[in-house]
Design a protein around this nucleic acid. Structure first.
Length: 299
DNA sequence: GCGTCCAGGTCTACC
DNA sequence: GGTAGACCTGGACGC
């Protein structure tokens, strides 16, 4: 089955796929020539593989592979999932209008960059974000890979879906520590999974337009294991770019780009992007990753 | 090959 | 409110 979706203005599949490290975390995958974003998910319990490619006529084509026929009305569910992951529902007109005034940022417009890839659900993004904290990228990929292969559902291609909240919540702390290699993050992952699975937390409410960035930040940091770094980067995946989401890598990169490698305080970095208002976090991230758009993606 | 040290972000206890 | 130490792992390094 194939689904064709119209893309919004300023959309680029390569720029979205390589916007950050998410495309290297299962159940995402990337194939080259033509660039294809793959993702394993499920509709009504049926595991499916998605293959997303760009077309010349401002559209993308999604090829769906499944072990059983997909119902016609499930096409809308799949289309909504893809639109959500590629941020079709967000407008970047204001962002492009602001950066238009700056020559050094012209490349962003040229590359149609700015849309940051996200998972099918906020739950998946939260667990993945916890897996990025206080460890190497190789450990992050291992934890996520283990979660999928041990607790996800197998799709026709042999890849696995990301586990549902109840699937993680049903596990023991020991299992997550020893089999998933999540270490001390295990109780954090369990707590979030249990809260979501039981309905104690409604993550869909986090997408509400009525919530301010600060209200969302408070909600996110109230979750165990989510501190300033994780919350600020999750905010970006929720469409709020007011905060920078600083971590050791981006601090170092900033000092290399702007201060000749000299150490800089967070206050200095935050001040520099203050002029971009609510888009400051996005300008910061794009500046830090500019070389990815001109050289090879590092992961 | 083995042991040691370090980096990484968040939580908790303490001042 | 600010700070120190613990948490856990992979990788780098020295022997």
């Amino acid at each position: 089955m194939q689904i064709t979706l119209r893309t919004p203005p300023f959309f680029s599949l390569p720029s979205t796929v390589y916007s950050h490290g998410w495309c290297a975390l299962e159940p995402f995958g990337v194939r080259e020539q033509p660039l294809t974003l793959t993702y394993t998910t499920q509709v009504k319990g049926l595991p499916i593989d998605l293959y997303i490619v760009s077309r010349d006529d401002n559209s993308i084509r999604v090829t769906v592979q499944s072990a059983a026929p997909i119902k016609r009305y499930d096409r809308a569910v799949i289309a909504a999932t893809v639109s959500h992951m590629l941020r079709f529902d967000e407008s970047f007109d204001e962002f492009y209008s602001i950066i238009k005034k700056e020559k050094e940022l012209a490349w962003i417009r040229r590359h149609k960059a700015g849309r940051m890839l996200r998972s099918a659900t906020l739950f998946e993004d939260i667990i993945k974000m916890i897996a990025t904290t206080n460890c190497s990228w190789s450990l992050t990929t291992l934890i996520v890979k283990n979660l999928c292969s041990r607790l996800g559902k197998r799709a026709p291609s042999g890849t696995y879906t990301f586990p549902a909240p109840a699937d993680i919540a049903a596990q023991s702390d020991t299992f997550l520590r020893e089999e998933i290699r999540a270490g001390y993050r295990s109780p954090y992952m369990l707590e979030v999974s249990e809260a979501v699975a039981s309905g104690k937390i409604d993550l869909d409410s986090f997408y509400s337009n009525e919530l301010s960035t600060e209200e969302l930040y408070t909600k996110l940091t109230s979750l165990k294991g989510i501190g300033p770094y994780a919350a600020e980067n999750l905010l970006k995946l929720l469409g709020h770019y007011d905060h920078l989401g600083l971590d050791s890598w981006s601090r170092k990169k900033f000092s290399q780009i702007h201060k000749n490698g000299r150490k800089v305080s967070d206050k200095v970095i935050v001040r520099k992007y203050g002029k971009y208002g609510k888009w400051g976090g996005l300008v910061f991230w794009l500046e830090m990753t500019k070389d990815w758009y001109f050289e090879k993606f590092p992961i």
